[in-house]
Amino acid sequence: MSKLFPTQEIGSLKKPADMLKKVKDPNVSDEEKTKIRNDAAILNIKTLEDIGLDIVYDGEVRRVEMYEEPVRYVDGFEFAGRVRSWDNKYYNKARVVGPVAFKQNFHAEEFNFVKENSNRELKVPITGAYTLADWSYDEHYKSKDELVLALAKNVVRPLVKDLVDLGAKIIQIDEPAATTHPAEMDIFRESINESVKGIDAKFVVHACFSGNDYKALAPQMPEIKAQQYTLEFANRDTWNEGLDDDSRKGFQVLKLFKEHGFEGEIGIGVSDVHVNEIESPELIRDRILYAAKALGDPTKIYVNPDCGLRTRTREVSFDKIKSIVKGAELARKAAE
């Protein structure tokens, strides 16, 4: 993108409460439910466009959540039941009971709809092979590596290829599990490379922060066939404005990426998705400017929240995105 510091969303937004109520209502017809979902997607797309994001999608409004949605449409999986995330929060976890295989492009309808209803650049989020494997019970393959590669080659690659055939230009591969197992980064790298093999598109990898400050990821980044990483920085940064190292603690690791020879783009997380407080545009400006200097090339910096905003209210989420857009504008002016 020719514009400096383009802004983008990571993927998920909280679903509108009235939409959830209606789509769960057995008295509402399937036709009406489709219309309700379409309306909710348009609401998200238009709101993100009106706020001023450069790259948009539909807030994953049609998806159950990032794991259960794809698993529903992949051969070889059976849901086992719910397992605790924390306290009274649970997620539905599946067993791999046979060879995994792609059945159909489960994001095709969603992508076609977004494409028809937006004239901005689109970034399609999909769940990566490593995370699908890590969050499942494997009763079929001999090893985790084997399952990860089978998912990459037989599920994610056909999905990506089909999305690109439909016109997708940017695909974000979501891999929240990747950094939780520092010893398994080799297979993570292979899974991404196998997922995108032979496909012409821009690939973005989104990985959450998990304790070791991306130190295990950094050496792999130049070897992974992704043009951009969208990563979390804000959740461990200070809320002080400023361009000094102490104020920008959360962004120190960018220097490590550079040391390891990574020359691609970074989508920097400038807004913490775990708190309701809204970062000021000035704070976001300083985070962007610091990151641009640390990475050594401002044209490689994209700006986004740390992660999906689905755990925040819609009001808080949109306020955070507004501040991101304003912060990026301030950073552009400062960089001129």
């Binding site: 605790r84 995330s85 924390w86 997620y91 998990s210």
Partner: peptide, 13 residues
Amino acid sequence: SLNRIYEMNTFYR
């Protein structure tokens, strides 16, 4: 705050 239980996809307080 919540913290991950080692490398599990489950968290404790």
